[in-house]
Design a protein around this nucleic acid. Sequence first.
DNA 1: AGCAACAAATATC
DNA 2: GATATTTGTTGCT
Length: 312
Amino acid sequence: MTQPLPLPAPPDGTGHDYILVCKAIAFISRAFRDQPKTEEIAAAVGVSTAELNALFRRWAGLTPKAFLQAVTLDHARRLLDGEASVLDAAYDSGLSGPGRLHDLFVTHEAMSPGEYKAGGAGLTIRYGFHASPFGLALVMANERGLCGLAFADAAAAPGAALDPAAPAAAKSFSGPIGRAAALADMTHRWPRARLIEDTAATAPYAERIFRPDLWRADQPLNVFMIGTDFEVRVWQTLLKIPMGQATTYSTIAGHIGNPKASRAVGAAVGRNPVSFVVPCHRVLGKSGALTGYHWGITRKQAMLGWEAGRAG
DNA sequence: AGCAACAAATATC
DNA sequence: GATATTTGTTGCT
């Protein structure tokens, strides 16, 4: 019952491939400074270059080379932003993050259906914009905890720079662009809530969310989830996925008792208001493909790479 | 009516 | 043969 969420590790084919891809992603995230050749990546994983290419293409939708570029690009951008403090802190703090802390770190509290229906009436939400490893983040919180996390820039969806022949990556970014749009995207979920810009109040949240070294089970981050019953159940399941690992939509569907509801799970995952903290980026298609992501497929890749690099 | 899915069938190399 | 593309079905908002 309370088993730690069955991850796609089992039968021969898929599980094996999955591990290989994980290894490759971890290797690239770790060694991107050296700009390893595809050959070297393949050697590190233990397969031929042809296999690696096919595998990667099948699982991640792009070639190992393209993934390497994405990781490198992302790193460069963070340094350029002059917001290197978060990144440096993460790298320099030894990345001690024993990978499993994430799920312990986050506790949650759901809204009652009645409160949900009220559209957030009587709720006071404070919000602020903060730099993060994955672009400008919009952080929202109320007295009971963190209640929203979104991204406000399109910078992490550089489909063009990444792979000119893959307009899919750029097109897939359907999310809002810009602060006002991001704020609107989040607030229309709770139309009656009172909003106050209060960067000072949200800064501590931003600080803790993106620094694994601050994740502690004894000082949990409280998350206030606002959604329908079904959505909340899906999000709770997501919180059980350990950092650096991934699951599938259909696995979650089975886990909450409706094996055939995978499509609905996908929709619910996408509606998750606290992206990254509720690890929606750790959900892949059953074939292992990186499917959609509200804030851009590239950002999803960056998150997975970021985590893979410090989970092992 | 519309989805961040899936499986099976079919077309393509 | 192994991969693209299409088609029917699916559960929840």
